Simulated assay, not measured.
Amino acid sequence: MSLSWNEIKDRALNFSREWENESSEDAEAKSFWDAFFNIFGVSRKRVASFERKVKKIDGKDGYIDLLWKGILLVEHKSLGKNLDRAYKQAKDYFPGLKDIDLPRYILVSDFARFRLYDLEEDTQHEFTIKELYKNIKLFGFIAGYQTASFKEQDPVNRDVPKAS
């Protein structure tokens, strides 16, 4: 049973209050992401794994903080760390993943800030943990809601036979 958007928004507000003062990646990142998935009524264990070992672009071993195969890759940093570098680090894992496991989304966070990249739509959204509830629909894919975008399409040109 999926949660309503109102329930999800309420859970996001509670999550933000609980985690707004956290700062240590080593101590709390795994609990943070378990709680994050719980916003959507999803058990993180059912969909994603922590510390997935992969070969990076330079041939060295790397460890993806969180991977939901084919859907989401998360790179988590301690408070105040550079999110651009976190994104680059996430992309450096791609050569070590099978094509089928490549994520549509990359999410980087330092507890206080989130940046979500949709690689299919080529979009990026950044917001603070206090603004999470306002941006929660960006994560509809976690809750099982379909994400769709509508773009301008070329008009259809076709010859219609005339009635005789």
Rank of each mutant, 00 (worst) to 15 (best):
Y133M: 06
L116V: 02
R85H: 13
N82D: 13
F94S: 08
A90Q: 05
Q153G: 13
L138S: 01
T147N: 11
I129K: 00
T147P: 05
D118H: 04
F111K: 02
I136K: 07
V74P: 06
L116C: 05
F139R: 13
F141D: 11
G96N: 07
N157C: 11
E126H: 03
K134H: 12
D84W: 04
F150K: 15
A86Y: 08
G70S: 07
D92A: 11
G70H: 05
L119K: 07
F111H: 03
L97E: 08
P95L: 12
T128N: 12
F111P: 00
L97K: 02
G96R: 07
I100L: 09
G96Q: 13
L107S: 05
F114W: 10
V74F: 03
E131Y: 01
L97S: 02
K91Q: 11
V156Y: 12
R85C: 05
K69H: 11
E120S: 13
Y87A: 10
E121W: 09
N157A: 15
P155D: 15
L116D: 04
R85Y: 12
G62N: 06
K134T: 06
W68Q: 03
G80A: 01
L83F: 04
D101T: 05
D99Q: 10
D84S: 07
I142E: 11
E152I: 15
V108G: 09
G62Y: 02
S109F: 03
K77D: 02
D159Y: 13
E121Q: 12
K60I: 04
N135K: 03
A143N: 15
G96Y: 09
L66S: 03
F150P: 06
F114E: 00
G70E: 01
S109H: 01
K69F: 11
K60G: 06
K88C: 10
T147V: 10
Q89I: 09
S109P: 03
E121L: 14
G140A: 06
E131A: 08
F141I: 09
L119D: 01
E121I: 01
V156D: 12
R113A: 08
D110Y: 01
Q124M: 14
I71V: 15
V74S: 06
P95H: 13
D101K: 12
L83D: 09
A86N: 03
L102F: 09
L138K: 07
L79S: 01
T147L: 15
L73A: 13
R115P: 07
